[in-house]
Design a protein around this nucleic acid. Structure first.
Lengths: 230, 230
DNA sequence: CGAGCGATTGAAAAGACTCAACCACCGTGG
DNA sequence: CCACGGTGGTTGAGTCTTTTCAATCGCTCG
């Protein structure tokens, strides 16, 4: 359980910051950032922002995991990305001056700070390092998405699941992967039933273990081969 | 047939520039740009850059169409984007300081200018308008790719073809869509045979006409409905 | 303890792919 | 001018993956 009275999280001591785009910010700016931000506790499955609305600022994840997704025509979610502590999300639509193309919701209880549009844009304009970091980040993600598209278009569900598990392994680190089957299916891009059947196969093949909803990777090598990475 | 002796294309008079990121560049910078660039004629199916190599600059399309694609594990191309005159391509990997994640080749004979890495990065650093244009462009594409991923994951091939034809309609404008069936299939993300069968269906339904390899859209409304845009 | 959501299984149907063969157009060289 | 070769386009048949629908199970929270 997270501490819900965390208004006292300061950027200065924020453990997530050292991995984030804000890691090289000067003391003065950090101070400004600290005053500009406001922190909140989010319950599981709470929305940060919703497709179609206009951005009013960016979200900085101090603690927790966030799914970023679009809604298909039938209302099915397609998870594009899962963000973790240290990541800043929601700035793309601010730059493109469009409504959000994606939605974001917490996957677990989270501490998230909010930085208003003007403060953020101002920092970008005045801080070259930060700005370059953002440009680099945008470019990197663009490359990742090209790969994502190719995987979706050309790989079987089985291969995509292997790929997805490897990504999730990175994201969850020491923890076990902890997603509903539906979310996992929506990340892989398949039907929930298909996903469940494949998880069983992986289990039978000794690649993973499942503990209720949690998934633990046993044989990473096999996953790498399956995903076509080896 | 394009004029192959086009070394005389100047940024000043470049017809494509007014639609490009360079449309708001000052006279002085334009002059610098003009001296920094070098122009070349490209035959059909010529590579601009290849996945895995390192970028040495960016390409500015004066005339022609370029496919941007990744190679899947089986060597099958997945076309991510088709660029046309006025677009600048190849800058993502420069920013992310990674090797190219995608390849780019001409779909038809083209005139393309090349701008070296240093000149380009220097312009980005000193010209705020240009820089913001780039950031905006990156962000926009990121949003488009989220949609692309969702389409790939959730739509049937039939729906994706409708979607693809609408995009191509924008790109080709007055001209008729002119791609090999294989390229079209690689854009839609399907097998060539499947694509051909669906084209026939669309033809039977009065949605398109085909003239040898060229595709002409007859009933855009139906396409919009099919693609789930209406 | 019951309600309800998430997880699981089975069976049938649909969509898409593969493979193999054949056709048609186009440029080349004789 | 015509035969030839090659690439790109088309068709058919069979197979396989994946989805859909329906039903059941089981954990968790009031």
């Amino acid at each position: 359980m997270l501490d819900k009275s965390h208004k006292n999280v300061t950027c200065d001591t924020c453990g997530a910051r050292r991995f984030s785009l804000f890691n090289n910010v000067s003391e003065v700016e950090l101070n400004g950032l600290d005053h500009a931000k406001s922190c909140s506790y989010y319950k599981k499955n709470q929305a940060l922002f919703v497709e179609g609305s206009y951005p009013r600022g960016v979200f900085c994840i101090n603690q927790g995991k966030i799914k970023v997704f679009t809604l298909g025509d039938e209302g099915k979610e397609q998870i594009i990305h899962i963000a973790k502590q240290g990541e800043i999300i929601g700035f793309r639509s601010m730059f493109s001056e469009e409504p959000y193309k994606v939605s974001a919701s917490t996957l677990e209880e989270s501490n998230i700070c909010f930085i208003g549009r003007d403060e953020f844009l101002n920092m970008i304009d005045t801080n070259q390092t930060l700005r370059n970091g953002i440009i680099k980040e945008l470019s990197k993600e663009l490359g990742e998405r090209a790969l994502f598209i190719t995987n979706m278009a050309q790989k079987s569900v089985r291969e995509r699941l292997a790929f997805a598990l490897l990504i999730l392994d990175e994201i969850y680190g020491d923890e076990q992967i902890n997603l509903t089957r539906e979310d996992l299916a929506n990340f892989v891009g398949t039907a929930t039933e298909t996903l469940i059947r494949l998880l069983r196969d992986f289990k039978d093949e000794g690649i993973i273990e499942t503990h209720t909803r949690k998934v633990q990777i046993i044989n990473k090598d096999k996953l790498l081969i399956l995903a076509g990475k080896k």
